[in-house]
Design a protein around this nucleic acid. Structure first.
Lengths: 133, 133
DNA sequence: CGGGATCCGCAATGATACTG
DNA sequence: CAGTATCATTGCGGATCCCG
């Protein structure tokens, strides 16, 4: 059948919308910042360059894999730079780029809102949960 | 064996750290905002109250399930209110609460950075990909 | 020291059908 | 109209072993 059902139309609209959605800068950024360890890594590097091991010790919650993956993503996006110093043993330093530093104020805005309003959120959550299990 | 291996110690450190991590307001907020459709929904409701169907049409990329789930989460966190008007057919309106509105400037900060810097991010990404496939 | 490679479980996401 | 219920998928996050 070549009949165009309503479902087909909806599916097409979805796909078209999602193409635009994936390209939307805001959502791309939110997606990145929503990555579990991105916020922590940026906060750590905000205070200065650090070696891989230092980061790993500062953020013991992240597995090696996730820490490396997070660092690679941020490097790919140009938010931080990775510097390898050939020696024995090898030394690798991570540092925020100017672009990465320009993101810090945004991150701080998020942090400030979160700290100031987390109480209200928790109260709302308790009220919601109490009212209807 | 009751021997305490280094792996055990690391596992404990991880768990302890993660408990604190889960409680960190910033990460909780980033997690929520990172939810795929939260940004879109907030942007839509920023312009005024809307009915469920309006939202669904404005955001065709989201399935019914995900839209409803997103709305429920935001309602639970006290960021928006859900008003049911008993009628035939039923009418349900969603509206940002003051708390939800107070989050808009933060979201706008994210949007502004994203729009201004997405070009650099894309350039960095192309450079990274070109250099090492 | 700073990873890479691999395998795995589970939760997030989604498509579809049905309901008050 | 505004959902709920159900089932399928997939990929994130993680554990573990190995390497230069």
């Amino acid at each position: 059948m070549t009949a165009r059902t309503a479902a087909d139309a909806r599916a097409e609209a979805r796909d078209a919308y999602r193409a635009g959605f994936a390209a939307c800068p805001t959502n791309r950024l939110l997606d990145r910042m929503g990555d579990k360890w991105v916020g922590l890594v940026l906060k750590e590097l905000a205070e200065g360059p650090q070696r891989y091991g230092e980061l790993a010790r500062s953020i013991p919650g992240a597995s090696q894999k996730m820490l490396t993956q997070t660092l690679r993503h941020l490097e790919r996006d140009g938010l931080l730079s990775r510097t390898v110093t050939p020696a024995v043993p090898v030394r690798v330093d991570y540092e925020l780029t100017p672009l990465g530093q320009s993101l810090l104020p945004v991150l701080n805005a998020v942090t400030r809102w979160a700290e100031q309003n987390i109480g209200q959120v928790d109260r709302a959550r308790r009220a919601y949960d109490a009212q209807q299990g």
